[in-house]
Amino acid sequence: MLSYPEPGPLTLNVNGDMLSLTPRPADTLLYSLRQELGLTGAKPGCENGDCGACTVMVDGLPIKSCLMLTAEAEGREIRTVEGLNNTVLQDAFMDAWAFQCGYCTSGFLMTAHALMEREPEADEATIVEWLRSNLCRCTGYEEIVQAVKAALEQTQRS
């Protein structure tokens, strides 16, 4: 049985790299990514599972990293916004000006990236349903939906 009764070393697979860290058993994945691994792309917003600013992908699924313990994530494939480089989706966000202050953007990108992998034929209703997991307090939702639609269309064309 895997157990962490005390802070102890563990290894996480983040963006394809095996990274060692020593979290407390009560540390969330969000906390460890930012404070121990220096990966600050996942943003602390509400830390209550509401805003989605901390969304990462775990085994291909969007997960709010404030709602996952670091110990839970051991043995799973974690992808953060730092693992996205020059993707069609990021280009589409820039083309559509799908951000204002930008604080929520990494969370939206990870939710949308998971959507593109799991639902490559997604229609607008599906896009909206997935993106309802994330909040943008600048209220730039329309541009974000347009960006995701454009990225999906471009991926389908290619």
Binding site: M1, S3, P25, A26, L69, E72
Partner: peptide, 21 residues
């Protein structure tokens, strides 16, 4: 951040979980 401390266990059988509890 969760300020309190707790231990994390990952039992792999029903009995293991219940006995540990």
């Amino acid at each position: 951040m969760i300020a309190s401390r707790f231990q994390y266990y990952r039992p792999e059988t029903l009995d293991e979980a219940c006995q540990l509890y």
